[in-house]
């Protein structure tokens, strides 16, 4: 019998703060776990630019807080593990879906690969060939173009990740601390060799909407669903506001490690 494609919610939220972005991800996770909203794919950007650190990282050990203050960059601790990321010229995605959904492998490693498959299809739609490198990287031209991180809470999967549209390694290293100052120059040179972006590969600037369009199609192809544009519910907005105060905008959360 002909089966209708499942419909998931599609959100675009541009220019939110780091605190709001991380609070929205958590709010969608909670709302989805309570069956109040469909599986959701969100694309977003960060304004002001910000550094996010992994749940287990030490803020002061990873981030030059004074420099952040001086040049107007926010910083936030994620609920997902992984490394520190500087978010400026990128499209960030997040996907929230029940752990029991047939499209999500139960095995965590496998589910990283599956969700990264959507990003790879999205990049393909832009004419970029890329590969998944376990556990949480996507490379194009042999260089990293996307980093990803997943958590599972309340029987719900949240994975978010970056798709670099451009990259400024020098600025990144102004803001991030390195283990050994003496080899900083070499590290910067290394990272420049190992990181790429859509702009570097295509040789042209790409805007958020173009990237989002390609990525949306990538997620639809990978999961065989229709993404239907929607809004955050008032319940989610309320939750997000609360999480912003309780967690992501608080010193206690961000400085906890």
């Amino acid at each position: 019998m002909f089966k209708m494609k499942e419909k998931w919610r599609y959100l675009k939220t541009e220019d939110k703060t780091a605190y709001a972005n991380m609070a929205i991800d958590r709010a969608v996770l909670v709302a989805n776990s309570e069956c109040k909203v469909s599986p959701t794919v969100r694309f977003f950007t960060w304004n002001p630019p910000a550094i996010s650190i992994g749940y287990f990282q030490s803020l002061e050990d990873e981030v030059n807080l004074e420099m952040c203050k001086n040049i107007g960059v926010d910083y936030v601790r994620r609920i997902t593990g992984g490394g520190a990321v500087y978010h400026e010229s990128e499209l960030t995605y997040s996907i929230v879906i029940p752990e029991s959904h047939p499209q999500v492998p139960k095995n965590i490693m496998e589910s990283y690969g599956r969700i990264c498959g959507a990003v790879i299809k999205g990049l393909k739609n832009l004419g970029i060939n890329s590969n998944y490198i376990p556990v949480n990287d996507i490379i194009a031209d042999g260089k990293k173009i996307s980093g990803n991180a997943q958590t599972r809470k309340l029987k719900t999967v949240l994975q978010h990740g970056t798709i670099l549209t451009d990259v400024d390694v020098n600025k990144m290293f102004l803001l991030l601390k390195v283990p050994d100052e003496k080899i900083k120059d070499k590290l910067i040179a290394d990272v420049k060799q190992r990181v790429t972006s859509i702009k570097h590969i295509l040789g042209d600037d790409i805007n958020f909407n173009e990237t989002a369009k390609a990525m949306k199609a990538g997620f639809e192809e990978e999961f065989n669903v229709d993404l239907v544009e929607g809004q955050l519910t008032s319940y989610e907005k309320e939750l997000a506001k609360r999480f912003e105060i309780e967690f992501f905008g608080s010193k206690q959360w961000n400085h906890r490690r």
Binding site: Y55, F56, S58, G81, V135, N136
Partner: peptide
């Protein structure tokens, strides 16, 4: 992995430890 350790030198017991880094752990 980055470990911050506070320990007793005499009896070699851990007083306090912070396990930090860019790894993943479930549940966090």
């Amino acid at each position: 992995l980055k470990i911050f350790l506070d320990y007793n030198e005499k009896n070699q017991l851990i007083n306090n430890i912070k396990i930090t880094g860019d790894f993943f752990a479930y549940p966090e």
